[in-house]
Amino acid sequence: MRILAVIEHDGSSPKPGSLAAVGFAQAVAERNGGHVASLVIGHTVAGIAEILTSFGIVYFADSPALANPLADRYAQVIVDAVSRYHADMLVAASSTYAKDIVGRAAGLLGGAMVSDVVAHDWRDGQLLFVRPMHAGMVTETVILHGDPKIVTIRPTAYPQPIAMETQGELFPIAVQDPLPVGMMWEHLESKLGTRPDVTDARIVVAGGRAIADRHDFERLVGGLADCLDGAIASTRALVDAGIAPNSLQVGQTGKIIAPELYIALGISGAVQHLAGMKNSKKVLAINKDPNAPIFDFADYGLVGDVYDVVPELIGKLHEP
């Protein structure tokens, strides 16, 4: 089996979560004697392609026309790469990038696609995929019919890839002329700030509706995160209220994370929120309602008002 992993990057290096797709591909290839290659798309991505050669062959498409991820162009490049490599399987780590672009490519490649895979298994030589549905209340096990198979995996569920002894070869992919022009890039308004990325951080502090405004979000959620070198996150309630940017939303329709410690401040524990954080190693919930469902999904609970508890916590963490 030939497996092609689509790698997302930030312009200078591959995204760590994205590399978990190679980790998954290696696990599958090891079992069935398959081969793994990576694909990187963008403009001035030679350096990123070079980094990826430590995991095997790398295909890369580099063009000013690919400077920004527009789904119609990128999906076309993916389809070309799949045919160049004769890939039987296309994998990517689940993210808005992969859902958008790899999803479209899958539509061009016959639609044998499974999203958000958290585990896999073999039965009679056939791959079984396990994935959550219903906001994570249920998991389903599925098989795919048709080739190529297209898989997105949860980066929290798969390890980083293992480097090879010898570097893989680099193959440029010529960009088709003309590329589709029905979509045009304008800009990206990014509010990432200086804190660690929520998907990679060891500790994540998340705020819910208990937080009244932006100032308090920065003071309580941001303040506690900074004491712990942690990342910040939020529920949908705060994003809807304009208190937190959308890129911080954790849950069914936001990011899926699994840090060592997740601290939920004034979060009720709706299934849609739990869907994004319940695989955290440890969960601490602080909520003034002793019956809040979040406590059923927490390892440590403190019943109290976040406006009292969090300042005290920050104060004590600052003490030598």
Binding site: E189, K191, L192, N246, S247, K255
Partner: peptide, 10 residues
């Protein structure tokens, strides 16, 4: 998107 609000034309 995961990195923020992206604006495109169609």
């Amino acid at each position: 998107t995961d990195t923020g609000i992206e604006t495109i034309r169609l």
